[in-house]
Nucleic acid binder design. Structure first.
Lengths: 258, 258
DNA sequence: GTGATCGTTGCATATTTTGCAATGACCATT
DNA sequence: AATGGTCATTGCAAAATATGCAACGATCAC
């Protein structure tokens, strides 16, 4: 819609790949060097881009800070966190909180396991959407046509022998998850890791987020992990209740006085 | 430099505070609603901004993904990580890697402690620059005039009774750190947490990054932590050697064929 | 000292963005 | 059901803004 901004933003993924100099940026944007320079300067003024000692550009600190701040200010996150911490204190395993957004599911909070062997994950990183328990819950609640459309769009990487293989299988799984109101991932992403997840709903009953408990086989078996299900669901419901109470109606934001 | 981009980027910190609707954005930018709309649309197309079901805007998934990707692609990070992991395996404590950039120091990698009581920190989050051991190392190597200028610019929050109180004290500390080639933070940020840090240098000897080991008093005393200093320094030197070897001359990036 | 590479600047052109005002969608209230 | 209000959206003409060019300058390697 706005050419200038469009070009400026196109620089970001380019720099995410690694540092680049002016000419490289100009070439990949297909604009004159001087144009690229001015765009980069503007980005620099905002701290989004950093100029290394060797003059090359890379993404800057403010970008990281922005991403952090945004996540910490998510309504759900603030409400959920104490509950997640409590659950972690009780069972000791890694607890995750995730949301869905335009074909991606990402972790927005995490309380680390107390055990030495831990699952790899990072806040802000997109999750394996076709296998993760939280992803199943979030997608299972999409309106039918969109759910189907998304499922068709996705890739189905075979992380392990138990990974979901295609859209049809995924939709079947989603239907089941939707029905039962909880989900699992038993070695679908990493052979030795299992998860149990439950949905967090807003006042209208829509799934607004999902939480999960994950643990590697070496710590607890899949069966043992499943015994935690009731507790996970109770935690998710507690969060839902609080969230629905606080953010049910899209909060009427006060207008500034003229 | 570029008004349009400037305005678009000004939206980001605004949304980082929390979701906002079109009118709020327009007001804070001091532009017409239609203008704000078009900017937001462009941001949306790039996934930088997300439109919630209630129509309000907030920062989007791609921003997080970008921040992640950028950090994972930092040259130093890739080189340092195995060394950090090894050190963590040996001592069990939390290990951090940090860089300096325009008045901020931020963690770009972290290996979590094996102990249940852990320090709070998050990759991408700016560190307490006036007290953190890694910050002292990074700032101590700035050219004298800039070091002074930065020290004057900073705030000196009193996190604890041992926090650095003002620019003068900070500069004295920096001189000491510069001299001895390593740094500590003994309860300057959080009463019960201590850190030992060592510098990572590029081929020219400049401090390019800094690493630290942190542990709470309840796990090891400050004195015990200090016994790790030689090991920390050795690790930092190993990383320096590898980094200098690989990235000494600003890597001549190949130009794309015309 | 010389040549080459890459970043930087001033300026005229015209493309792109802007603000306006009108329309439309949606919600709450009576 | 109807009405009033809030807020998002669109087309258009005016003008401000970004663009590419070409010349300059800095820096580095040879």
């Amino acid at each position: 819609m706005s050419q200038t901004v469009d070009r400026a933003l196109s620089i970001l993924p380019l720099l995410a790949e690694g540092p680049a100099n002016l000419e490289q940026v100009a070439q990949r944007l297909d604009v004159h060097k001087s144009t690229a320079l001015r765009l980069l300067r503007t980005l620099h003024e905002h701290g989004i881009v950093y100029r290394q000692p060797d003059q090359r550009y890379r993404l800057g600190a403010r970008l990281f800070a922005l991403a952090q701040e945004a996540m910490e200010n998510l309504d759900i996150r603030g409400i959920a966190h104490p509950h997640l911490a409590e659950l972690n204190a009780a069972c000791g395993h890694t607890v995750h909180l995730a949301v869905y957004e335009e074909d991606e599911v990402l972790y927005i909070d995490k309380v680390e396991s107390r055990y030495p062997v831990r699952m790899y994950s990072r806040i802000g990183k997109p999750v394996a959407i076709t296998v993760a328990a939280v992803a199943k819950l979030l997608l299972s609640d999409l309106p039918e046509p969109e759910r189907r459309a998304v499922a068709e769009r996705l890739d189905y990487p075979r992380y392990t022998a138990r990974s979901t293989t295609d859209a049809a299988a995924f939709l079947t799984e989603l239907a089941k998850v939707r029905e039962q109101g909880w989900a699992t991932d038993l070695g679908g992403h990493e052979e030795s890791i299992n998860c149990v997840a439950a949905p967090i709903r807003d006042a209208s009953g829509r799934v607004a987020a999902a939480m999960s408990v994950s643990a590697p086989n070496v710590v607890v078996s899949a069966d043992e992990l499943l015994t935690l299900l009731p507790r996970v669901r109770r935690t998710a419901e507690a969060i839902s209740a609080e969230y629905a109470g606080r953010a049910s109606t899209p909060p009427r934001t006060e207008r500034a006085a003229p």
